Every structure is written in C-alpha cells, then in structure tokens.
Computed example of a mutant assay.
Amino acid sequence: MPAYGWYEWPVLADGTKQPHYIHGDGPLYFAALTAWKPGTELDAAHGFAIVTNDTEGGMVDIHARRPVALPSDVAWRWINPSYLTDDARELLNKGVPEDAFTWHPVRQEVGNSKYQLADAIEPI
C-alpha cells in the first residue's frame, strides 16, 4: 500500500488526544494483506489490512505499533503472488527502520474524514 505518511493520536497528560503526522523522506510502501486474487472482481469483501509491528525508541511516545514500511526493492518482492509464504514473512524483517521517520503535531481537523486540505500534514 503506497503512502507518504500516516497519523496517530497520542493521549496527552490532560487526557486529550493530539494528532501527529508521521512520515519518511519519500514514498512509503506498507506491507498489506488481502484475500483478493488477480483476475477476480474488486468488491467490498476484498479489502486489505496493513501489517503492523511494535514500536521502539522515541516512537513509543506516539503509539505502541506502526505500519511495516518496506523499501521499494523489498516491496516489489512482497507484492509478487508467487513469492513463498515463509520468504514473504522474512521480508517483514527488512522494513524501514524507525529512525527513518519523523513526526510532528498537526491540526485537530485531520480526525474528520471530510477534512481533505493540503495543510492536514503541516506542523502546528
């Protein structure tokens, strides 16, 4: 699943949630799973789930888990339907390291799916 970043809402000391935008230096490729098979109809029953892993280091303050982002060369292997399951599982260990990401607080409006303005990723 291609993306440029994702949002998390850590709880602040006063109990409120503050959205943060987390990103790398360029496109990210999240490992995802689906029941859809090439050549079959796309429908609501064949969505996908993004694979996550526990966080470490400073990112723990934002959330306990994060998407597994794969480098582009590894992502190409991940999406190959003929890749063996055990080999695919091993690819999850080759994700982009946590220190490749940066994050900053963003405006509260990003929690509303109707908010689609470009400033949704701008630091506040």
Rank of each mutant, 00 (worst) to 15 (best):
Met1Gly: 11
Pro2Gln: 10
Gly5Ser: 08
Trp6Met: 03
Trp6Tyr: 15
Tyr7His: 08
Trp9Met: 02
Val11Leu: 11
Gly15Leu: 14
Thr16Val: 06
Lys17Tyr: 03
Pro19Trp: 05
Ile22Leu: 14
His23Asn: 07
Gly26Gln: 09
Leu28Val: 00
Tyr29Pro: 00
Tyr29Trp: 13
Ala31Leu: 05
Thr34Trp: 05
Ala35Thr: 14
Lys37Ile: 12
Thr40His: 14
Thr40Phe: 06
Asp43Ala: 09
Ala44Lys: 15
Ala44Arg: 13
Ala45Leu: 14
Ala45Ile: 02
Ala45Trp: 12
His46Trp: 09
His46Lys: 15
His46Gln: 15
Asn53Trp: 09
Asp54Pro: 06
Thr55Gly: 08
Glu56Gly: 13
Gly57His: 08
Met59Trp: 07
Asp61Gly: 14
Asp61Glu: 15
Asp61Val: 05
Asp61Thr: 11
Ile62Tyr: 06
Ile62Asn: 01
His63Arg: 10
His63Met: 05
Arg65Thr: 04
Pro67Ser: 03
Pro67Thr: 01
Ala69Gln: 00
Ala69Ile: 00
Leu70Ile: 02
Leu70Glu: 01
Pro71Asn: 07
Pro71Trp: 05
Ser72Met: 10
Val74Ser: 05
Arg77Lys: 15
Trp78His: 06
Trp78Ser: 01
Ile79Arg: 11
Tyr83Trp: 12
Leu84Phe: 06
Leu84Val: 12
Thr85Phe: 11
Leu91Ala: 03
Asn93Pro: 01
Lys94Asp: 11
Val96Glu: 10
Val96Tyr: 02
Asp99Gly: 04
Phe101Gln: 02
Thr102Ile: 12
Thr102Ser: 14
Thr102Leu: 15
Thr102Arg: 09
Trp103Gln: 00
Pro105Arg: 08
Val106Leu: 07
Gln108Lys: 09
Gln108Glu: 12
Glu109Pro: 05
Gly111Pro: 03
Asn112Tyr: 07
Asn112Val: 06
Ser113Gln: 15
Ser113Leu: 05
Ser113Ile: 04
Ser113Arg: 11
Lys114His: 12
Gln116Gly: 09
Leu117Ile: 01
Leu117Met: 13
Asp119Phe: 07
Ala120Arg: 11
Glu122Gly: 02
Glu122Ala: 13
Glu122Pro: 01
Ile124Ser: 09
